Amino acid sequence: MSKDSVRPARRRQSRISMRAIAVITLALCSFVINAAAHAAEPGKDAGAATNLPRVLVLATGGTIAGQAESRATGAYKSGQITGEQLVQSVPGLDKLAKLSAEQISSIGSQDMNDKVWFALAHRIQQAFDNNEADGVVVTHGTDTLEETTFFLDNVLKGDKPVVIVGSMRPATAVSADGPGNLYEAVQVAADPRSRGRGVMAVLNDKIEGARLVTKTNTTSIETFNSPNGGPIGYVDTAGGIRFMAQASGLKRATYDLPANEPLPRVEIVYSHANMDAVPIEDAISHGAKGIVLAGVGDGNTSKQALDALEQAAKKGIIVVRSTRVRSGFVTRNVEVDDDRYGFVVSEDLSPQKARVLTQLLIANGVTAPAKLQQAFTATW
């Protein structure tokens, strides 16, 4: 073979080798770029997942876990879907937090009781004390959601966020609101700005504080509001979380749970036209340690009922004046001489929340009217 024929062959081999090197180099670059991009996506690898906040979801049942035979019917059964199933059914939750779910109960919240309250309080406190979670979400029915929120706010110690969430439509309904509410609840529980704000309720793009939040409509998804103060923040998947003020930093008053449930018996007596003493006498006969009056107007009631409440107070039963009116404060010593009767006024607390606080105060040995009134006075 001549030298002239060898040279073109070598040049062809050289060009092939250069092409192979270029292909290999491009492949390596592509691998590195893809790997870097993959690592940059939150929740896509072990490193990113490790950095996500840890949120514990505690399920109690309620409409948010409800199922109906037909998507077109309003009839459904509460608490049919587990907490784990709820978590798995909402796309994108794993991008917000490292989630774990536990079932505390499977009931409609009309059946909420001290046993479930105690179980929730102990499990949440344990999770925080043992550094198992950075935040907690509790799925709950809406009927008594405000009472559970207020109860937990008064017994949990620490500043880590706890968010109560529910829905007005069952999970199987057309345009169910539960998945969106749960997503936003996890958003709030996972956000470090939520620390120090007490227990919160998150529904329908709003963040409500434990003291004021209440259910205001029987069926509408726009049902939870805080009549005397408004929401403490807003949340949506696009705009994120917007709190209306900085966390106050004030230490919340918290109370110890008794060794065993139930809490002391406290009855709510609803005032109305032509009111007599019978409901009050009935509460006393059944061993009530406290009576909350859902009074007319500024927490008032008929003379017969007031006389019966005065006798109850003289027997050592705690009497708290609240109001059946949705908004406004009950003012001390205006329409009723509270000092004379030995009564306490609920200020801005609804009858149902006044009942919860009265139970906790009695359980903690607080019975003097002055100390009771101090506990009811808003400090925010």
Rank of each mutant, 00 (worst) to 15 (best):
L52D: 06
R10A: 13
V162S: 11
L58P: 15
N217K: 05
Q126W: 09
R123P: 14
G209L: 03
D45C: 14
G83I: 05
D256V: 04
N204H: 12
L263F: 14
K371N: 15
I284L: 04
R332G: 10
L156N: 04
I268M: 12
V165A: 06
G74T: 05
A247C: 10
P262S: 11
V325F: 05
N225Y: 09
N217C: 08
W380S: 15
G233T: 02
G158C: 02
L263S: 13
I164R: 02
L182R: 02
V296M: 03
L99T: 08
Q373K: 13
L212V: 13
A375M: 06
Q13M: 13
I362D: 03
A294P: 13
A20T: 15
T25Y: 12
Y76R: 03
T331G: 09
S220E: 01
G180D: 08
D256E: 14
G92R: 09
P262A: 11
A363P: 12
L349K: 09
V319W: 02
S285R: 05
V6C: 12
G229D: 06
L293V: 10
A37T: 08
G249H: 06
G62M: 01
D4Q: 15
G316Q: 00
V188A: 04
V325M: 00
A59V: 01
G342R: 05
N274F: 11
K371F: 11
D337Q: 07
I64D: 09
A370L: 11
G297N: 00
E267D: 15
R195T: 12
D205I: 05
A133N: 02
V23G: 12
K3G: 09
F329G: 04
I107N: 09
F224L: 02
I104N: 00
D236V: 00
G135A: 09
R242T: 10
F224P: 00
A72K: 10
K115C: 04
T73M: 04
P170C: 09
D45A: 14
V87L: 07
I232W: 02
K115Q: 08
Y270E: 13
P179R: 02
R324N: 10
V344R: 09
N225C: 10
Q85Y: 09
V292M: 07
Q373W: 11
G240C: 03
V269Y: 04
H286C: 02
Q373S: 14
V163N: 10
I24P: 13
T172W: 03
I21M: 10
C29G: 15
V278C: 06
E147K: 05
Q85H: 08
I207G: 11
P42D: 05
G196H: 03
P231F: 08
H38I: 00
D256F: 04
Q13I: 07
G74P: 01
R193G: 10
V356Y: 06
S14P: 10
T25F: 11
L56V: 08
P53G: 15
G328W: 05
D307V: 14
I241Q: 13
V319I: 01
Y341S: 08
F243C: 03
A277H: 06
M112A: 15
